[in-house]
Amino acid sequence: MKKLDRNQIAARVARDIPEGAYVNLGIGLPTLVANHIPKDREIILHSENGILGLGPRPAPGQEDEDLIDAGKAPATILQGGSYFHHADSFGMIRGGHIDICVLGAFQVAANGDIANWHTGEADAIPAVGGAMDLAAGAKQVFVTMEHLTKQGESKIVERCSYPLTGVRCVTRVYTDLAVIDIKADGLHLVEICAEGLSFEALQKLNGVPLKHKAAA
């Protein structure tokens, strides 16, 4: 079996982002999605710290300390972009104006619950940022993650064991193995991405039952 690498997962997500979408990309793997949007497709990236029309990283020497992205890295703004304050920025998120957000996760449950902010360990310093707002507010919540933990356990689970970020909010999961939709009646396989992985083998790794058109 040949799993997708991080850039391949990002490229797969990018395929599903339509022209004209307002999109918020989380920190880490989700950020890579921006690199894979086709040049002829116009989408508008939202950055929680007050940008619509977030552009690519500035060239070395062109950084501006007043212009950063949600990960606090130097950023640029596109022609047509805008700046706004934090309450407006999260009003866009909470108010359902963001079409798609892409988040990383520790776990996603079959009912759409997501856990991505805290391991629950007593001495771990908790930090939530905008994750709960995005989970609750975006029209569609896409999750990108590796399908399995280092110990080989599925991160797609019946119920999350880590503290929740949001309830019943994830609509689609992109992993190094597969793309899976989360609907009211459970998990639906969209496609297998890993080369040489059968549906039966994926089902065994996934743990939670997958619905599959071909198998139905």
Binding site: H86, S89, I93, R94, P126, V128, G130, D133
Partner: peptide, 13 residues
Amino acid sequence: LELVPQGTLAERI
């Protein structure tokens, strides 16, 4: 520490 989701922090202010 009082930890508050970022959008809730902004809206409370």
